[in-house]
């Protein structure tokens, strides 16, 4: 098989890795490599500088506290599935199980899935709903010119720039994700193929008690740059009693177009509308097995 020229560095600790990354910010960070090997590293005649991450054990740790669970960016998807009891999210579990065949999930990693250029795949919207925070690390020279490692936690929302691309400064990388526990009792997850390997997905987390919606988080994504989480519509739904009356239902459906601008692709607009309707129906009659699983 043809292979383009590579230069590979395998730093043995995070400090070395970040120092190298700072020196050469054009380098590619490789964890599982499932996306890189298929889509990025096949342009002939280009020279790639690669920084390997898989040997760094600190990036493969999973831990938990009372309020959240943390996963290193190199934790594989299958390991996340196996340790589902730590993350305590049926929605996350569902999403992870749908991410490709078993052997691919053994290579693909959390960080890799979040950082695919130009595409926000399955994991991003779910982590967004769970109010995940992301640890960014980088190194900075001190006065004595030695490097020191810095870290900051940002909300996953702030990971993206306005044009939907990953918004990290040169030399910065994601090292951990912190996923708070969500005590809701309702989840909704639908993924519909739009074209080729693009899907529109709707994810929702909610708390509904005696028919009254006390909390809701709702997100639509099309795996490209379309990510819609609209607080207005969430606010509009909050406090409502389900099942909705016809008037309320029609009003909510009518309002949808104010909150979500119609997409270029009419099929996407159609899906958003209908999946939203399905969500309302599901809230009115939540499936039993989704309530209080964790």
């Amino acid at each position: 098989m043809k292979q383009p020229p590579y230069h590979i560095s395998i730093p043995q600790n995070l400090m070395d890795l970040l120092s190298l990354y700072r020196k050469n910010p054009a380098s590619l960070l490789m964890a599982g490599g499932t996306h890189l090997l298929n889509h990025t590293l096949n342009r002939e005649g280009e020279h790639y500088s690669i920084l390997s991450l898989t040997q760094l054990e600190e990036l493969q740790k999973i831990s938990r506290t009372d309020r959240y669970a943390e996963a290193g960016c190199c934790v594989t998807i299958n390991r996340m599935i196996e340790t589902a009891y730590i993350f305590r999210s049926p929605l996350l579990q569902d999403t992870l199980c749908q991410m490709g065949p078993y052997p691919i999930r053994n290579s693909a990693t959390v960080g890799g899935n979040l950082c695919i250029p130009g595409r926000r795949k399955d994991l991003f919207p779910v982590l967004q709903l769970l109010d995940t925070r992301v640890e960014i690390r980088y190194v900075k020279p001190k006065r004595n010119k030695r490097m020191s490692m810095k870290s900051r936690w940002i909300h996953i929302n702030n990971l993206l720039s306005h044009d939907g691309e990953i918004n990290l400064a040169e030399g910065e990388m994601i090292t951990r994700v912190r996923i708070p526990y969500y005590d809701g009792n309702f989840t909704f997850h639908r993924k519909v193929n739009i074209k080729d390997d693009f899907y529109l997905s709707v994810n929702c987390l909610a708390t509904i008690e005696k028919g009254v919606l006390s909390d809701i988080r709702l997100i639509f994504t099309n795996e490209e740059k379309l990510i819609i989480r609209n607080r207005d519509i969430e606010a509009n739904l909050l406090g409502r009693r389900f099942p909705l009356g016809k008037k309320d239902h029609d009003q909510l459906m009518g309002n949808l177009s104010h909150f979500y601008m119609p997409n270029e692709n009419p099929y996407e607009t159609y899906l958003i509308r209908n999946l939203f309707r399905q969500l309302l129906e599901s809230l009115a009659d939540p499936p039993e097995n989704l309530q209080g699983t964790w």
Binding site: V192, N193, I194, K195, N265, P266, Y267, Y270
Partner: peptide
């Protein structure tokens, strides 16, 4: 056929 192709019929 793709699902999107069937849309015009529903509208």
């Amino acid at each position: 056929l793709e699902s999107g192709d069937l849309l015009r019929g529903v509208n």
